[in-house]
């Protein structure tokens, strides 16, 4: 899924695709989450490749989008104050994680649970925008990613997760 307003993602930047997709999915639901997902994608993209013409073109366009968005969200403190933003993203990520965890513990396995664990794992990644993760967040990040992969594998193979 391409991000509206951005050129096609160059193959070299495939690693940031899911963060951009999560941002697009949250554009209507939670603009703060969407903004910080794109900021994370920007920073990660810059470490991967910002020299080749197609990557540079993409990253400059993403930067234009972020600057524009920050101007538009002038009254949103969570976007303009990163400490408030961090608390916002962390609360949201935890909410998604707890939903998936509760479903999992109740034995209700579905694609939705896989997606929630997966999204929570990515949102915990996004929290590295704000510095080193706490031990608890780091633990949840690893657990969410492992659970998403595990339940996905079970569903695919017709097995019941344990």
């Amino acid at each position: 899924m391409a991000t509206p307003g951005l050129p096609p993602l160059p193959p070299a930047l495939k690693a940031i695709q899911h963060y951009l997709k999560t941002a697009t999915e949250h554009e209507q639901r939670d603009q703060v989450v969407a903004y910080y997902c794109q900021l994370y994608a920007m920073q990660k993209g810059m470490t991967i490749d910002r020299k080749s013409p197609d990557c540079k073109h993409f990253l400059v366009s993403l930067m234009d989008l972020l600057e524009k968005k920050k101007q538009q969200l002038i009254d949103n403190e969570a976007v303009h104050n990163e400490m408030v933003g961090q608390a916002h993203v962390e609360n949201y990520a935890l909410k998604v994680f707890l939903f998936a965890d509760n479903e999992d513990r109740a034995g209700r396995f579905s694609k939705n649970v896989v997606k929630s664990f997966y999204t929570a794992g990515m949102l915990f990644d996004v929290l590295t925008n704000f510095g080193e993760l706490s031990d608890d967040v780091e633990k949840n990040r690893k657990y969410a990613k492992w659970k998403a992969a595990y339940i996905h594998r079970c569903l695919k193979n017709g097995e019941t997760p344990t």
Binding site: L39, M42, M46, K51, M63, L66, E67, E82
Partner: peptide, 29 residues
Amino acid sequence: GSTIGTASSTQASTEQDELSQRLAKLRQM
């Protein structure tokens, strides 16, 4: 050849700095 190479790297380096500068500015806005 080497002069062109040097010019290109200098240009690339300046452009990289611009992206980093914009990122730093964005996060301070």
